[in-house]
Write a protein that binds this DNA or RNA. Structure first.
Lengths: 222, 222
DNA sequence: ACAAAAGTGTTAAGAATACACCCATGT
DNA sequence: ACATGGGTGTATTCTTAACACTTTTGT
């Protein structure tokens, strides 16, 4: 009997902060099933293409997001999923990515790709709400034991911006003094001599991560 | 153009303790490629079968390991891997499982399935040494923030056995007094009135996990 | 002068670490 | 009686958590 592989798809959960809120990239499907519904950008992975290549291709063609827009990307989980495909059972490899100031672009394949708040998520197709929830959990865990948050901030940022980023992912408020003391003690960031002034108040010192790549923390955060 | 899916395979990393050592289930391949080499039990996932079903089928047919032998199983990672298949690029979904006193059985598909020590790992086929390393890391992390260790112990066990299990996974020794104080404070185990006597020394009290299913710890361990 | 966000320190409670001896048993 | 592994406590250091006022700026 000939071997026939299951349908393989790749879906991506791309997070970024918009107005201090954690948001996820969704596209409006232009074909059945779930035509007209919002969904994670995803599509078929064909023979000869790695899942990682497939993820980049789909983000590009369906959301106008370029590989360089993602400051951090990692594989999330592989779901045996109800197929989007009439052939039945399919397998979906998912990725989670983080970025800052990504601007999705209109294209011929999908409509209105954009970032939607994770709290107050609109209706999404398939089991994508579950996948987004899973990714959110993973992200929250990730920023407690790594410096992954760098991928959601500008290169130079204030400690308040950093704290807001943590609060947006955790979905809870943190104590300012304890947050600063703890984070600075982790030796991940370097204070610059630059300040950001934006309004009728004291300017804020800018910091930068010593390493713009994933590191595990000595003590876990929060 | 017709859609042709990549080859999909499933490989499993099954750990158990043998003589206080962390060991992994390997089988000797009876076909090319890597004929005669040790490898993780794995095989093709065909259309209509979930990866989880496939994992159970392969463990059964290639190693004589039954689903019930595994006290804990979870998906590990999906590798875009050098194919075992002449058709080229393939995708391999991997699972990590834990058990206690599993006895692999000879079968017609593979030779001498058995548990081999993770330190002092023999030569294994493909990139399976990397996969085993990845699984080992994940397991070590898992037992620090969950009660997953229950899956590698008898239902009733002594605190020394528990400590040895942790030491085997971490690959380092722990302080007996601190280990007990900390672990008991986590409120995961219940002391029984039973004792185990085995030799010329004081009998050891038997404990049991309050829950034989995965729980996250309030404070992470070690 | 006032409004707004930046910045800063102390105390108390809990957790982690280091460390050495007595206990119960089988032979 | 001795060898073997089981079992226990304290002191010190570090980490966490709770908590409020002063500083610098723009208008």
């Amino acid at each position: 009997m000939p071997y026939i592989a299951p349908v393989l798809t790749v879906d991506s959960v791309i997070f970024q902060l918009v107005d201090n809120e954690l948001c996820v990239l969704l596209v409006r499907r232009s074909h059945a099933p779930f035509k007209g519904h919002l969904a994670l950008p995803g599509g078929y992975n064909a023979q000869g293409e790695t899942t990682s290549e497939c993820m980049e291709r789909i983000l590009h063609t369906k959301a106008g997001v370029m590989p360089n827009d993602l400051r951090l990307i990692e594989q999330l989980y592989t779901f045996d999923t109800i197929a989007r495909d009439p052939r039945g059972h399919a397998v979906s490899v998912t990725y989670m990515g983080l970025g800052k100031d990504i601007i999705p672009t209109e294209n011929t394949r999908t409509e209105s790709p954009g970032f939607y708040p994770v709290t107050a998520l609109p209706d999404v197709a398939y089991d994508h709400a579950d996948i987004i929830g899973y990714a959110h959990q993973r992200l929250a865990a990730k920023i407690t034991y790594t410096n992954a948050i760098y991928a959601m901030l500008d290169t130079y940022f204030t400690l308040t911006q950093l704290q807001i980023a943590y609060e947006a992912v955790f979905g809870k408020e943190l104590d300012k003094r304890n947050f600063r003391k703890k984070f600075l003690s982790l030796d991940l960031v370097r204070a610059t001599e630059e300040y950001r002034r934006d309004g009728a108040h004291r300017p804020a010192r800018l910091y930068t991560f010593k390493q713009q790549k994933l590191q595990t923390l000595l003590r876990s955060f929060d």
